[in-house]
Amino acid sequence: MTAGGGGPTLVLVVAVGIFVTTGVTLLLERSLTRILLGVILFGNGVNLLVLVGGRAGGAPLVGAGPTDRMSDPLPQAMVLTAIVITFGFTGFLLAVAYRSWYLTGNDEVQDDLEDQQVVRLAARNEQPAADLGGEGPDGDPEQVDPPPERRPPRGGGQR
């Protein structure tokens, strides 16, 4: 903030723009690690934007000074809440990235089977069939995964 409390400095506005732009760019990547970094940068950029939008002044404590010279405590409370939410979401994304790395050896997000079907239909310029519902699992052409195999019961199945 400027010394006179007139508004944000150009440096803070540019920092918000860089954080948000870089965060959105990283969010559009396919690697979970880059998506995680994008979430962190985007969250920090938005937090800085909320703080820049608040009024500068003294501490918002009753009796610390005149009320017209106090800073607005609402943006500070909103940023504190956003930091906690971003931290929780970062922990969740870290767990998903770790699990993906553990199971597949990479952290790249794969295409969904339905997405691949939509891309194939779009390439042939066709419309997808309407889902009428009510079909059994054998009569539904939208079922792309086979049912899971049944494991034999323990102990040979006979008692």
Rank of each mutant, 00 (worst) to 15 (best):
T22A: 14
L36D: 05
T90E: 04
F92D: 07
D131Y: 14
T67K: 00
P66Q: 14
P146T: 07
A129G: 08
G63N: 04
D68Y: 09
G65A: 05
S71P: 00
P60C: 05
L26E: 09
D145Y: 13
P60V: 09
G65Q: 05
G43H: 01
L121V: 02
P148R: 04
L121S: 05
A64I: 00
L26S: 06
D140V: 02
D72V: 02
R154L: 13
P128M: 08
T67L: 14
V52P: 00
N47Y: 04
V11E: 15
I18V: 15
S100P: 00
V24D: 07
G88F: 10
F42Y: 09
G45T: 02
A97K: 02
Q117D: 15
D145W: 11
G38L: 02
G6D: 13
L49Q: 05
R150Q: 14
L49I: 01
T2I: 06
E142L: 14
L36K: 04
L80W: 08
P137Y: 12
G38C: 03
A97Q: 02
D68G: 00
G58F: 10
L132N: 12
A97S: 06
E114V: 08
T25P: 01
A77F: 12
Y102V: 06
M1H: 14
N106A: 07
P73S: 06
T25W: 15
M1V: 01
T86I: 09
R30A: 06
T81E: 14
L132H: 11
L61R: 08
E114F: 12
G139R: 09
G7M: 03
G155N: 08
G17C: 08
F92I: 10
D138I: 00
V13F: 09
M78Q: 10
V109S: 03
V16I: 14
S31M: 05
G23P: 04
V39T: 12
G139F: 03
A59H: 01
N125C: 08
R69S: 12
G155E: 09
P66S: 13
L28D: 10
P8K: 07
D140I: 03
G54K: 01
L61M: 10
V20C: 09
L80A: 15
G65W: 03
D111E: 11
L32V: 01
G43Y: 04
G17R: 07
V16N: 03
V118A: 15
G65T: 02
V14G: 02
E126S: 07
D140M: 05
G6K: 06
A82Q: 10
W101N: 09
V46T: 11
T9W: 04
